[in-house]
Amino acid sequence: MKSLKFAAGLAFVATSVAAETPVLNVLTYDSFVSEWGPGPAIETGFEAECSCDLRFIPAGDGAALLARVQLEGARTDADVVLGLDTNLTAAARETGLFAPHGQAPELDLPVAFEDANFVPYDWGWFAFVHNRTLDAPKNFRDLAGSDLKIVIQDPRSSTPGLGLLMWVKAAYGDEAAQVWKDLADNIVTVTPGWSEAYGMFLEGEADMVLSYTTSPAYHLISEQDDSKTAAVFDEGNYMQVEVMGKLAASDQPELADRFMAYMLSDAAQAVLPTTNWMYPAHVPAEGLPKGFETLVQPTKSLLLGADEAEALRAPALEEWRAALAR
């Protein structure tokens, strides 16, 4: 009887401890959470020091993420949203759901980055990935003049697709429509997402695919295959900066701050290059993983400001559609 009381007491203590463990909900894109993404290592690392329960809520891809935040609105359980890119942050800020991050992160981005609501955790250059044997074009005009075939993603359903739209716009401004018209006969097809396009490229359906300069690192490091490389364009390569932000409605604002700080720590940043296959926003003390030094480095980095990107999106999309809908 006594031992039963003891056990009951113990159970009570145990449940109250469990109840006191704060939970931090992080809404992110699906591939971040998967066992091949950064999620599991980040979860283990952060939980070891926060005495909290870190839970990821997967929500499709980057574009779906913003829709999800808007669907849930202020009632959301999420504390942090991780995985938007700068083409979406203006729309995200517009919702009024995000709180200022109040941090002064030390960043290693090739361009200056300033945003009161969002902190970058990794970034990459968009680039056309191709086989090393290919004599790659030097810019979009070169590409349009060649008979090379490319696969791209649809800017209406995919964030890399939207990135390409901004890339052409940032590089060519008012001439973007003409560039798209000239590119039309090079585009084999437009896929809904990154995976389909990359898969088709690997199957030999195109000479080049829109991806990142860091994509060849996957093949090199995970498959010991150095046959892939990416093209540096002399008008510059557009960047994708992936950011995270704290929701104003969070019931764990301090924990959210700690998580965002942790994401920029050496421990977390060292995980990203070989799981997300992007550059870390802050290069960890031990440097980049071996193999990353072989990657091509664009000499010029393009990135539109969040507001500019938001303002350009609709007209650029219309230009794109009109030029390609032959």
Binding site: I187, T189, V190, R326
Partner: peptide
């Protein structure tokens, strides 16, 4: 439809 359709000319209502 989008993948095999070859581009925005093959835009469906679902897209």
């Amino acid at each position: 439809v989008l993948i095999v359709g070859g581009g925005p000319a093959a835009t469906t209502v679902e897209l």
